[in-house]
Design a binder for these strands. Structure first.
Length: 336
DNA sequence: AAACGCAACAACCGCATCCCG
DNA sequence: ACGGGATGCGGTTGTTGCGTT
């Protein structure tokens, strides 16, 4: 039973930086035989490397589509936006930057952006080896930079909180309307439209799930936080994204006008099933984490209400993931 | 010119997840 | 449904080389 010993323990294997000859051998082998079967590849190709190392070298360095060179300002901007939306899911972020690898973006974040974010200077990128003038400044540990970032203070323009440190599958989203004073279990109230009234998603799966997630709701004592006059929970699936959420007219949604108070708004909370049994079509959490009783709970994270631009970002990414195309600006949701 | 400090990034490591029999 | 191998992913470490003293 158990896992076979890691090949990295094999003392006869080469470690460290790859040589040009090794690169050539690996490139040549993959050109002929294609990717995959990494465990067997080194033996077949005649490389004294472990399969993992070969895979990493190929994916992060040797692939022909890899774009070398500095991260451009546009790319940096995109990374920041995506990180705000996706957290430390570097592979997802890299997937939206053609030619860039997750490793490259992760490194870039840790050495550049993460530091700027911590220091509160998101637009003052220090270029590679540009100057040592800032070396005397406080030196945050780059490897820790992405692990703990303080939640943003209310109304600070650039909110860069990382939602969670470890990528986890998001299986549910809970919308919590903080408007009105209706009872959470009142079915009548749930038939009301957007606006100052409770949110309604008229989708069969939502209704079906209502009872179960109401239980979950009381479990976390949301009521005591006075956050939830209404709550609806649902599986994130394609019908939700493409149907319920995407087809909803948000023109009456007033949540963005009352950020960080209970006077009106919608919070979105993500939950994570430990057994990953629920279907998932997006696996990113959209929002900005907020200190509440829920914060730190292993399975449920409460997010602060989104700003308009944050919400649009999230919707764009969600839609893009679903349809594999860019969102037309005309196709975005109208917000008051 | 040598030593040192640091930034950048390549590579490693271990765990999570996927996939197939 | 389950087990185990293959692969993916993110955190961390090691190496390199530039800039400063």
């Amino acid at each position: 039973m158990g896992r076979s010993p890691c090949c990295s323990k094999d003392q006869s294997l080469n470690r460290g930086t790859w040589t040009a000859i090794e690169d050539k051998i690996l490139k040549g082998y993959i050109k002929i035989h294609g990717e995959g079967k990494w465990r067997d590849l080194p033996k077949r190709a005649g490389l004294k490397r472990c399969g993992k190392s070969c895979r990493l070298r190929w994916l992060n360095y040797l692939r022909p589509e890899i774009k070398r060179g500095n991260i451009t300002n546009d790319e940096e901007e995109l990374i920041i936006r995506l990180h705000k939306l996706l957290g430390n899911r570097w592979s997802l972020i890299a997937g939206r930057l053609p030619g860039r690898t997750d490793n490259e973006i992760k490194n870039y974040w840790n050495t550049n952006i993460g530091k700027k974010v911590l220091l509160g200077h998101p637009n003052t990128a220090s270029k590679r080896r540009s100057s040592s003038s800032n070396q005397a400044q406080e030196k945050p540990n780059p490897t820790k930079a992405s692990a703990v970032i303080e939640p943003p203070k209310a109304d600070t323009g650039a909110s860069c909180a990382v939602i969670r440190t470890k990528a986890r599958r998001c299986t549910k989203v809970i919308l919590i309307s903080t408007s009105g004073s209706q009872e959470p279990h009142d079915h009548q109230q749930q038939q009301r439209p957007f606006g100052t009234k409770p949110v309604v998603f008229e989708h069969p799966s939502l209704v079906l799930d209502e009872y179960h997630h109401t239980v979950e709701f009381s479990k976390y004592n949301l009521e005591e936080n006075h956050l939830s006059n209404f709550m609806m929970d649902f599986e994130i699936d394609k019908s939700f994204l493409s149907g319920t959420l995407m087809s909803t007219d948000f023109s009456e949604l007033s949540c963005f006008q009352n950020k960080n108070n209970n006077d009106g708004g919608v919070s979105i909370t993500t939950c994570h099933d430990k057994d990953h049994s629920s279907p998932t079509f997006i696996d990113h959490a959209p929002l900005v984490s907020k200190e509440t009783e829920l914060h730190g709970s292993e399975d449920c994270q409460l997010m602060a209400p989104l700003t308009e631009s944050e919400y649009l970002d999230w919707l764009c990414v969600s839609k893009d993931i679903l349809h594999g195309s860019e969102v037309n600006s005309d196709d975005q949701f109208k917000l008051t």
